[in-house]
Design a protein around this nucleic acid. Structure first.
Lengths: 192, 192
DNA sequence: AATATAACTGATTAATCAGTCAGTATAGTT
DNA sequence: AACTATACTGACTGATTAATCAGTTATATT
């Protein structure tokens, strides 16, 4: 792995676990056994480093979901919906840094004044909502899911699942302990 | 209003809109027409100021919900559930600073090492979950809500509503535009 | 009016941090 | 070997920041 990739990885972890302002370029440098000037050689500013981090997280998320749906095939829309929820929770555990980063406020603040940031965030959330929506559309077509507003319900399901992950990341409640009830709620929402 | 209250109010707004690290004591001082040393006279440190802010937010939230349920009476648990959801959304708009503060990561980070902080957050979230739970219990008793795990479903409903508010605060999606679908989803979850 | 307590402030300090720059090491090409 | 481009670094700077403290002003109390 190149030094630049090293820096990106370390920065992802530090921005996710400590926050943007709370992470110093010196910390990133120390973690990668580099001089702090090296970071500025590869990334023109701290903000630019953050944008690269967010972009790589975006790529990672899209790739992970893409792989999952390449391998897995579902016979009904409801099955796909439940599978997506499960995979979302799995990913939130397996790639905790990504979701920690997305559950901080900084990215959304930066998005207000930076279009690259805005675009990365939109790509990420569209990826999520699109998949939930697709499951709902398929489910309505095959009769496994009842009549409801597809896009908006997709958003609400994302809101529920993501809210649970946030609760877990904030040490408020354990997402795992709620898994069965979450699936039960999803089935009630999808009920015909 | 006393200067100390002035400072608390200004700090609430600044911590909520800009974050803890991103807010300087000088800013708080400027906003309240005081010298920065005055802030340190009333609050022994920046962290102590934050703890006071969080505690006052806790008091505010508990008082607001207490008032609402004093005035409003519900004939069924389902009505109470819908009323609570509506009031939560109303409050998130009317006291946006409170929810912005709670949607930042800093409070939960501080809670890891500070028990006062932990306690305030627990009080706030217990207040939310308790009310949703009470509505579910009542609804099951009066037959307006189906059989489900009360505490865990209460948590999931909070997760959905709070997730929506967070999406709005992050400028991702508009909570208002989802109101009708949210109520529809709540009814599906509560269905007998 | 005298005294005491609380509220407030200007000036300062020590530390931290993003970013710069002049220069060195490394690797690839001819 | 000479040349070039890329990768990397140590030393520095200017700005910002939380916190301190000695001292001043305002408010009550006697």
């Amino acid at each position: 792995m190149s030094k630049k990739e090293d820096i990106l990885k370390a920065a992802t972890l530090l921005f996710a676990t400590n926050g943007f302002k709370e992470t110093s370029m010196t910390e990133v440098a120390t973690m990668t056994n580099a001089a702090s000037a090296t970071i500025f050689y590869h990334f023109k500013s701290k903000e630019a480093l953050f944008l690269s981090v967010l972009n790589s997280v975006k790529d990672g998320i899209i790739e992970e979901f893409s792989h999952y749906f390449d391998e897995k095939k579902f016979s009904t829309g409801l099955e796909m919906l439940e599978g997506t929820v499960s995979f979302y929770l799995y990913l939130a555990g397996n790639k905790a840094e990504w979701f920690l980063l997305l559950h901080r406020y900084y990215p959304y603040e930066l998005a207000k004044k930076n279009n690259t940031c805005r675009q990365s965030l939109e790509d990420i959330y569209n990826c999520f909502v699109d998949i939930f929506e697709k499951a709902l559309v398929q489910g309505q077509a095959d009769g496994s899911i009842g009549k409801l507003s597809q896009r908006k319900t997709a958003l609400l399901i994302l809101s529920t699942v993501d809210g649970m992950v946030r609760f877990k990341n904030c040490n408020l409640y354990d997402a795992g302990a709620l898994y069965n009830e979450l699936i039960a709620v999803i089935r009630r929402i999808a009920a015909t």
